[in-house]
């Protein structure tokens, strides 16, 4: 199933695929040809990597006429973030809030 976390980690565990994601992060909505231009990979290799990224839902595609455009979908990575880091981030934000409150209380005294 496309939401499968295993697919996301497997897809990310490859430098070429991460390079393709980097490229889309800078310039979203590229065609296969445009993606091939920026890499020293064969067209077949790029196609194969894109299929893996698409299966992991890290890349979504949309047709514009006869062109297939590729977009970086950051949602699965955000889910990794919220699962392992978001919790700590929330604690940090809370700590800042508490600090602010404590300091402001001091000032009012």
């Amino acid at each position: 199933m496309a939401t499968n976390e295993d697919n996301v980690f497997k897809a990310l565990a490859d430098g070429s695929r991460r390079a393709l994601l980097d490229r889309l992060r800078v310039c979203n909505g590229l065609t296969l040809n445009e993606l091939c231009e920026g890499h020293e990979m064969t067209r077949q290799a790029v196609t194969k990597h894109l299929a893996v990224l698409e299966a992991a839902d890290l890349v979504v595609t949309k047709w514009r006429g006869r062109e297939k455009l590729h977009y970086l979908n950051p949602v699965p990575i955000n889910e990794i973030y919220t699962r392992w880091i978001g919790k700590f981030e929330r604690g940090r934000l809370q700590a800042l809030d508490n600090l602010k409150e404590a300091l402001e209380e001091d000032r009012h005294e």
Binding site: M1, A2, N28, D57
Partner: peptide, 8 residues
């Protein structure tokens, strides 16, 4: 400028 997000 366009972004597409999908989630299941």
């Amino acid at each position: 400028s366009e972004f597409i997000y999908t989630i299941y």
